[in-house]
Amino acid sequence: MLTKRIIPCLDVTAGRVVKGTQFLDLRDAGDAVELAAFYDAQGADELIFLDITASSDKRETVLDMVTRTAEQIFIPFTIGGGIRTLADMQRMLSAGADKVSINTAAVQNPGLIKEGASYFGRQCIVVAIDAKQRENGGWEVYLHGGRTPTGIDAVEWARQATDLGAGEILLTSMDKDGTRDGYDLELTRAISEAVSVPVIASGGVGNLEHLYEGVTEGKADAVLAASIFHFGDYSIKQAKEYLRQRDVLVRL
């Protein structure tokens, strides 16, 4: 049977890992490729790198990081952040990334999802959605790390992105991100039930119970976490043992 995946997320800038609280206050957590190899050895099912460097002159450092990671680790990894065109996707995939994640560019140009899927196969195309709760119910898609509202309904957008060719949805709750209060389970479940492709839950993990809730109540196919792993609160193995004890199928 297919297992639930545990995915450490590495926010990177110039090849170094950082993790922001609500995307603002950044802390350094080490060299990206070293950390990737460490998580692979611990039993991570997959890795996601989110490149949060804004400046384009640093782009080459990201490409170098992707190449070095691909030489050293033999589990799937995704790279996201700053990918706007087919050519950007091509560069990352050729360097050795298995998937690319697109967020802002997908909202601004939904055709990019379709082009990417037909060119590289939909299994390569992850659409990342940052969503915030609306006052009168539902969730809205935000861009630029949660600063720019779009007026777009998150569930509707997830459905549309999947129809266009997204192979997976990486869903982040902007309300929960950095809080360590747990995932937005209602949001996660709503999206997971709305689309036919796997959903990766993100934003808000503070303990192992939260991972459990994400795959059970939230119906997520995979759970993403950063700081609980980066700062050694828990190891990947501990997380998996915890989930297995609670009858969630994991790769151990």
């Binding site: 049977m1 036919s196 492709v197």
Partner: peptide
């Protein structure tokens, strides 16, 4: 085939 709870594509680790 499309079946409830089993997503297509299958993505991930299986035995």
């Amino acid at each position: 085939p499309d079946r409830p709870g089993l997503k297509v594509p299958q993505i991930g680790w299986n035995s």
